[in-house]
Amino acid sequence: MQVLIDNYHLYLRGLGTTLQICLYAGLLTLVVGTFIAGCRVAPLTPLRAFGTAWVTVFRNCPLAVVLFFMAFGIPALGVNASYFVFGTIGLALYTSAFVCEAIRSGINAVSPGQAEAARSVGLGFGQTLRLVILPQAVRSIIPPLGSVMIAMIKNSAIAGAFGIGGDLYAVGIRQSSAQGEAIIPVLVGVALGYLIITIPAGLLLSYVERKVAIAR
């Protein structure tokens, strides 16, 4: 395990980059996923069709294909940005389909009478969704939404394979191939880095679930 001690600064740097990817992708996927969930339950057929198509495409398309398109397809169209940006956006778009379904399940769990009462006092669809439905749906979507976000953190390793650079995956590749370090301790270091992120995230999720259960 001497390789972990000698290169701890690289792992710390990789951990920081991975945290940045997860933070930016997490925020973006929550925004996009919530918007798509609104489209899925909208009264307008074109919006529902758009939301359904979005979820169908991204939920049934492998993450590697989405990231490959972001890393090589988008630049071929003349759009230039760093692999960090493309990888983060690709990870967020892919995860947004699963976030959408988690939020939609929470929306459907709210009594229809709540929406009817909101409409009876003159609230539009957007206001009803934002002010009445989503605040009540939050309690039921926390467990599935938390699981999706933890899966996204682990999927960030796949994003790192497409040249983001500096993340935990890149650190492992550099140590094992470029510097010829033993693969097992290198992978142990990478795995520990992801556990440092996912275990606290799981504990936080459990804490929030307990608080919500008490609130009920």
Rank of each mutant, 00 (worst) to 15 (best):
L77T: 12
A170D: 12
E209C: 10
Q20T: 11
T29H: 05
I196L: 11
M70N: 06
P143K: 07
V132D: 00
A159P: 15
G189L: 09
C61D: 03
Y11D: 05
L30G: 02
L187A: 04
I196H: 03
V132S: 13
G189C: 10
I21V: 11
R13T: 09
R130M: 09
Q179S: 15
A64F: 13
I133E: 01
Q175P: 09
S82N: 12
G165T: 04
A71M: 08
F125L: 05
Y24A: 01
V41P: 07
A151M: 10
L205N: 07
I133R: 02
I197G: 02
F50M: 06
L93I: 15
G189F: 11
L192T: 13
G160V: 10
T128I: 11
I153F: 05
A118R: 01
F68R: 00
P43E: 00
R210C: 03
R119K: 13
P46I: 07
F162L: 14
G165E: 01
A109E: 07
K154Y: 01
G160N: 10
R59C: 07
Q2A: 15
V132K: 08
G166Q: 02
M149V: 14
A182V: 14
G16Q: 06
A42Y: 01
V190H: 11
Y8P: 08
F125H: 05
V132N: 12
L30E: 02
Y8C: 11
L47G: 09
Q127K: 08
K211A: 10
L63Y: 05
Q179G: 06
I196T: 13
R59V: 07
L30K: 02
P112E: 00
A118H: 00
F72Y: 14
I133S: 03
L19E: 02
Q179F: 15
R119T: 09
G172N: 05
I107K: 01
G14I: 05
A157T: 12
Q2T: 14
A159E: 06
A118L: 01
T17A: 04
R174C: 03
G113M: 07
I150K: 01
A37T: 03
A92S: 15
S177H: 06
S105M: 08
D6G: 13
L192Y: 11
G180E: 08
N108H: 09
S176E: 04
A109T: 13
V65E: 07
R40E: 00
L129G: 11
C39K: 11
V55F: 03
A182D: 14
L15E: 01
P75I: 01
A71F: 12
R119F: 06
T18D: 01
A92L: 12
P135G: 07
A118S: 10
R139M: 07
I89N: 06
T198L: 06
V188R: 02
L93R: 03
A71D: 02
V32Q: 01
G163S: 10
V57Q: 04
V186N: 13
F84K: 03
L30Q: 04
E101C: 15
L129W: 01
G38W: 09
Y94C: 12
A117M: 08
S120C: 09
A53H: 06
G163K: 04
G166F: 04
L47T: 03
L192D: 07
G146R: 11
I183N: 10
L28Q: 02
L204G: 15
A157V: 11
S105C: 07
R174Y: 05
N80I: 13
Y94L: 05
C61I: 11
L23A: 11
